[in-house]
């Protein structure tokens, strides 16, 4: 039997289900039923995502959003080790502690490079290998590891589903034809006889629409078909390969500045337990803006 991505989704669903069960039995959890329900619904979307009709999954997603926005989810108790215990353990294990954590990317690399399973299946396998080694090193039970995993996922909270959620919004924008409206608007306000103006429109348009969609790939097709190809390539004769790659990089500048790219900006802030959910974006804005200006200069100088 081939291991596929779907199997990794079953594994994720099973783990989420375990989180949900542990939450119900967490006696000192203030929001246990809401939190348990949230992880339970989420686990169903992983295990039965391909079986249940899409609109029912959509309904479950709406339910999760409601549970989260009513603040029915929260953090519980995890029988954490104390600071002293951690210091003693760090002393005892030393740099060996890095080994299981580093095994995850190494396995991903090996699976992605030497098999046809792909990096995402590799991620799941790396997680299993890393966990096995960590359990062997620490002589802990699977239950403790699951509970520690629950500690981390509760720290991220509902933001865990934000990336998938925004992808769904992007799909709706796409279906409703939002991209076309944006591209037409930009194309009407730009003085098309100036090379510099159309280059700015292409690069800034990529950055702005990426900020709206949260995803440079989704923005690329729309902005390139609406502005890049008719105005920059056809009208002013830019090299499509050079203009294209630099426009994509302009889009990445947008990714750095938007909460819509939740998986890069908002989820990490939650994962790092930062007070300010926009803290990562704030750090990135100066670099993103300078690089966007550089992209405009590069297209203007290199693509013509």
């Amino acid at each position: 039997m081939m291991i596929t991505l779907e199997h990794m989704y079953y594994l994720t669903g099973a783990l989420l289900f375990i989180f949900s069960v542990y939450t119900v039995f967490d006696k000192r959890h203030r929001a246990k039923y809401g939190t348990a329900f949230f992880w339970f619904l989420y686990s169903i979307t992983f295990v039965f995502g391909k079986v249940i009709p899409a609109w029912i999954i959509g309904l479950m997603v709406v339910c999760m959003a409601i549970v989260a926005s009513l603040k029915w989810t929260g953090r519980g108790s995890y029988k954490e080790s104390s600071g002293e215990e951690k210091a003693v353990a760090a002393e005892k294990f030393g740099n060996r502690l890095f080994l299981p954590a580093l095994l995850v990317p190494i396995v991903i690399f090996l699976v992605a490079g030497f098999t046809k399973l792909g990096a995402l299946v590799g991620l799941g396998m790396g997680a299993v290998v890393g966990l096995a080694v960590a359990l062997y090193m620490t002589r802990e039970s699977l239950g403790t590891a699951a509970n520690e995993g629950r500690r981390l996922i509760d720290a991220i909270g509902w933001a865990v589903i934000l990336s998938q959620f925004l992808a769904a919004l992007g799909a709706l924008f796409d279906k409703a034809g939002v991209g076309k409206v944006v591209a037409e608007m930009v194309a009407t306000i730009v003085p098309t006889d100036s090379t510099l103006a159309v280059v700015i429109a292409y690069c800034v348009g990529m950055a702005l629409f990426t900020m709206i969609m949260g995803n440079a790939f989704a923005a690329f097709a729309v902005i390139t078909t609406g502005i890049g190809i008719p105005l920059v390539v056809r009208l002013h004769g830019a090299d499509p390969a050079i203009a294209g790659v630099l426009a994509m990089l302009s889009g990445y500048c947008g990714t750095l500045m938007t909460p819509m790219a939740a998986n890069f900006n908002v989820v990490p802030a939650a994962l790092l337990e930062m007070k300010d959910q926009y803290g990562v974006i704030k750090a990135q804005v100066p670099v993103a803006l300078s690089l966007l200006i550089i992209q405009i200069i590069l297209v203007y100088c290199l693509a013509f």
Partner: peptide
């Protein structure tokens, strides 16, 4: 709901 659900599942 259909679009939301299928995009949510595709992006797992």
């Amino acid at each position: 709901l259909d679009v939301i659900g299928s995009a949510f599942v595709t992006n797992r």
